[in-house]
Structures are given as structure tokens and as C-alpha cells.
């Protein structure tokens, strides 16, 4: 069993009127099964309202299942006695960088978690030093969080989680409110923690460029997992992704369009280099013979002919 596992997970948001009668039930997660391997980097995609954030909050025991079970490191999140241990092992980073920093000085904020779990003072300092170093924020340790950029604030938030020595970090759209440079900064930090420290990462995002380095991509829709595979596998299904209100990186889309136009391009191209190599190969393939009609909508016609 992996580090995080959910079985037949269901979660309902229940709205009650003044007399505590149920007014409305909104099923955010609908019978979801997932198993996340220790040390892996998993990206979760899905449009707003697809249930991603609700899932994320289950891993930290902020929400507990309406039905089904979630285990973190073999601990059932519904078990009240394990709640603090679960939260220590599965740290969480949220979307709005301002609303998760508690300390008035960077280093004090990083120390907040360890203080809460009763780590001795000397050890807190050691952890704070290490965590700030791991996210590259040591130079800012005496600064006020209000003076930092969005990307830096998120790195402080990540350091705050790292100081709890977690096995897993769940990031709920950590880059949604950042500019492109801030986004790169955060993604680089998270990838490094995953590779160097072996931290399991679950990252929710709307930005497709951010998931191409993940080990595994999960797409959610209406509270269920609808796609699950490597980035390459997922991004070779461009139309399906668009059907879930998602997008693909421009190189992926361009390769897909060329393929539809009859060009000999492989599926699921994710990077600039891969695109250039594939295109050059396709070009020399053409030069060597193998001619067919190439038009932007050749693919549509071929598809029509197949039907």
C-alpha cells in the first residue's frame, strides 16, 4: 500500500437551514479510489469545482470522508487520535500565500509548526535552518512576510511545512495567484524537495506546463478520477482534456495539430526539445519518400473516412 490511499471516498458538502434540516447536499467527491506511491510526484488537474481541493483537504484530515476511507501512512484519517500525527506527516500548502503565514518574521513562521508539535527549542532552530535552506530562503529569514514576493511567500509556506519533517506535501494550487516567475520558483522548489529529500508530492494546479515533470497526472471531473497516467499518456489525449475544460501546453497542441494534419509526429510531446527532434525526424522521413496530402484538416477527413 502506498503512502496515501483512498478507497470508495465520498464527500458531501451539506448545507443546513436554521432548524438544522438538510437544505442542500453537494457531492464534491463521488466514489474515488486512489493509491499514491511513496516518493512520487503526482499532479492533479481538473477545472474549478471538480473536487480536487476537497480531495486535498482529506489527506490532511481537515475534512473526513462522508463515506469510504482515506489512509495516510497506514493511518485512517477518521481516527481522531491520529489527527496530529497525520497532519505532521502530510503537510499542506494553500493557494493564497498571505492567508497561511502566521508569523510576523519569516523564521518565526517556519518555526510555528514545530512549536505546535512540541519540538524542543534547539531542535526547532535546527529544523528552521534546514527548511529555509531547502527552499532557498535563508537570506530572507529576518524579513517580514509582507515584504516578500508571492513566490517567496509560498516558499516560506513550504519551508513551514518542511520543518515538520513530513513524508508528503499536498499543494492546493500553490501557483494560482503568482506571476510566471513566481510560479517557476515554486515549481523548482517543489521538484527539488521531491528529488533530493524524497518527499512525496501531490500538487493541484491549473497550469499545464507545471505538470509535465510529474511522475503521474490525475485528472478529476465531477468528484471522480477520469484520467490517470504519465504526463505523456495524458497529454496525448488532447481532445479529451479539452472536454474536461483543460488545456495542453502549446508544443503539445502544435504536435497534435500536425499529427491531425497528417504529419508523422508522435503522441504526447511535452517539451520544446522533444518537439524539435520529432519534427526534424518527420521532415527527414518526408524527404526520404512517404508522401501524402498534408492540410490542417486532413485529420478530420481521415477520421470521417474511417467512420
Amino acid at each position: 500500500m502506498g503512502i496515501i490511499k483512498a478507497s470508495r471516498l465520498v464527500f458531501d458538502y451539506i448545507r443546513r437551514d436554521e432548524e438544522e434540516n438538510i437544505e442542500e447536499v453537494d457531492r464534491a467527491i463521488d466514489g474515488l479510489d486512489v493509491d499514491v506511491e511513496k516518493g512520487s510526484f503526482v499532479a492533479i488537474l481538473g477545472h474549478n469545482g471538480s473536487g480536487k481541493s476537497t480531495l486535498a483537504k482529506h489527506i490532511n484530515a481537515i475534512l473526513v470522508p462522508t463515506e469510504g476511507t482515506v489512509w495516510v501512512s497506514d493511518m485512517d484519517t477518521a481516527d481522531d487520535s491520529k489527527v496530529w500525527e497525520i497532519r505532521r506527516k502530510a503537510g499542506m500548502v494553500f493557494q493564497n500565500p498571505d492567508n497561511q503565514i502566521i508569523g510576523n518574521v519569516v523564521e518565526e513562521d517556519v518555526g510555528f509548526g514545530p512549536e505546535n508539535i512540541g519540538v524542543p527549542t534547539d531542535d526547532i532552530w535546527k529544523r528552521v535552518d534546514e527548511s529555509l535552506e531547502a527552499v532557498g530562503m535563508t537570506a530572507y529569514r529576518y524579513k517580514s512576510p509582507n515584504k516578500l514576493s508571492g513566490g517567496q511567500k509560498q516558499r516560506v509556506a513550504i519551508a513551514g511545512v518542511m520543518a515538520m519533517r513530513p513524508e508528503c506535501i499536498v499543494l492546493d494550487e500553490p501557483t494560482a495567484m503568482l506571476d510566471p516567475n513566481g510560479r517557476k520558483e515554486v515549481i523548482r522548489t517543489v521538484r527539488e524537495l521531491n528529488r533530493k529529500e524524497g518527499i512525496t508530492v501531490l500538487m493541484i494546479t491549473h497550469y499545464m506546463e507545471e505538470v509535465i515533470h510529474a511522475d503521474r497526472v490525475i485528472v478529476m471531473d465531477e468528484g471522480k478520477i477520469v484520467m490517470d497516467g504519465t504526463p505523456r499518456e495524458i497529454f496525448s489525449r488532447v481532445d479529451e482534456l479539452k472536454g474536461y475544460r483543460l488545456d495542453v501546453p502549446q508544443v503539445t497542441e502544435l504536435a497534435y495539430e500536425l499529427r491531425r494534419g497528417g504529419a508523422d509526429m508522435p503522441e504526447g510531446i511535452l517539451s520544446l526539445d522533444a518537439f524539435v527532434e520529432s519534427f526534424m525526424a518527420a521532415l527527414s522521413g518526408r524527404r526520404a519518400g512517404d508522401r501524402g496530402v498534408l492540410t490542417p484538416d486532413a485529420g478530420d477527413r481521415n477520421a470521417a473516412a474511417e467512420e
Binding site: 481537515i62 496530529w84 503537510g91 494553500f94 510555528f112 505546535n116
Partner: peptide, 8 residues
């Protein structure tokens, strides 16, 4: 929520 997530 963030404070709770950090074991406060």
C-alpha cells in the same frame, strides 16, 4: 485552516 494543518 492553515493553522490547523500545521498542527496548531
Amino acid at each position: 485552516m492553515a493553522m490547523e494543518a500545521r498542527c496548531y
